[in-house]
Design a protein around this nucleic acid. Structure first.
Lengths: 218, 218
DNA sequence: AAGCATATTCAACAAGCGTTGAATTAGCAA
DNA sequence: TTGCTAATTCAACGCTTGTTGAATATGCTT
């Protein structure tokens, strides 16, 4: 077990597990469903990844590095463009969100599933704290630092609560629950990520400005 | 099965199921865990509620009516107070959120668990659409109608997306993932509901104003 | 082609699952 | 007390689960 190999079947196990875990959660998926979906024997998942929980962790960690890099790169890029005065709240939030939208719209369904899985973990009272922090806290604190610079009058506590609200709005978008579809009678589609992010950016930016001061920048 | 009785043990089954389902989700909980937690035999749950899914539905529906009533009553009350000109965005959002905060802070742990369960369902791609709509859409549309009156220039589509962001921020708060605790190094606690709602109201209200027009009311 | 490590399947296990029918207890009416 | 009904437990079922050890296939090196 715990081989670092990446045979084609091994990748397909990860892909199918990603999709099913995102949809039904950890306990809602059996190794046999995953194996069947990947077209392999049940024992192969154990051979490559060990216990079921190890497979879950492997799925969760697989794309984390790439995601963090693309978000951090987006932040650095907008910071360089802004020069000495630093980027605006909108620009920082855009750097935080757009890489996700792009990942969801590349046509690579795997990324959409992976982000839905993040939503599942982030919203889970049981898994949330333990699993998210390890992989994403460093990056998030980087963004919060940028926001602190853009909102110099902000109290630290307020900054964190505002991030919490941003994170919640984002999480629900990643989960694609389809609730907005039914509620709006078809006017909004949860699969229309561009519309979701286009609305989320000004919405959350205005929230940050209101709660964290910045009267001069309205 | 499907008896309408409410013996003391029957209620305890619902209470324990509520807590465990909220924590681990539908598939993460076994009837035997619930029975053990409630101090009864495993067959008793089936006797009172039928299949496992029926028990889940019973838990989910038990407090829905009371919750809807208290929220609707809060809305009507703030509408009466506001008189002819109608309530502000902040007042409407406050009516939407405060009943939840109160429920979480009555000391009755059951309500906290129930709201965490709502968060679980609302964020689930699989359960979200089917289960939430039936019980809560009517009330939500009532609030959106009130917001439409307070923001007369808003496009309907924008109104729904803004509600989506509000719903996301709220959902993450209800789930109490503890992520904000670790992230802020203890400056924010996810169990401090008052702080959460005190920040959420101005945050989301500013978002609605920004996205849905209302320049004259800023 | 022979050898060897890796990859994959096969077969089976013990444990736990939801569910059910029969047996037992508790609560209440006559 | 005697019934009768609802509430609860007991015991067991067929099935699925995660996991593992042995057997087979595959691919690469020599």
């Amino acid at each position: 077990m715990n081989k670092k190999s990446s045979s084609p079947k091994s990748e397909r196990i990860l892909d199918v597990a990603e999709e099913l875990f995102a949809m039904h959660g950890y306990d809602g998926v059996t190794l046999r469903q995953i194996a069947t979906g990947a077209g392999v024997d049940v024992a192969l998942a154990s051979y490559h990844f060990g216990k079921k929980m190890d497979l879950f962790n492997a799925v969760f960690a697989r794309r984390a590095g790439e995601l963090n890099e693309s978000r951090l790169s987006a932040l650095r890029q907008c910071q360089e463009r802004a020069g000495k005065k630093g980027p605006t709240v909108e620009q920082i939030i855009e750097a935080f969100l757009r890489p996700l939208e792009i990942a969801q719209e590349t046509g690579d369904e795997g990324w959409t599933n992976y982000l839905a899985l993040i939503a599942y973990v982030n919203n889970s009272p049981y898994w949330g704290e333990k699993m998210m922090s390890k992989l994403f806290d460093k990056l998030v604190l980087e963004f919060i630092a940028a926001l602190r610079t853009a909102l110099p009058d902000a109290r630290d506590e307020d900054l964190y609560w505002c991030y919490h609200n941003l994170s919640g709005a984002l999480t629900l978008t990643l989960a694609q629950t389809g609730r907005i579809d039914k509620l709006s009678g078809g006017k909004c589609r949860s699969s229309d990520f561009q519309a979701a992010y286009d609305h989320m950016i000004p919405f959350t930016a205005a929230g940050f400005r209101k709660v964290c001061g910045g009267k001069g920048k309205g």
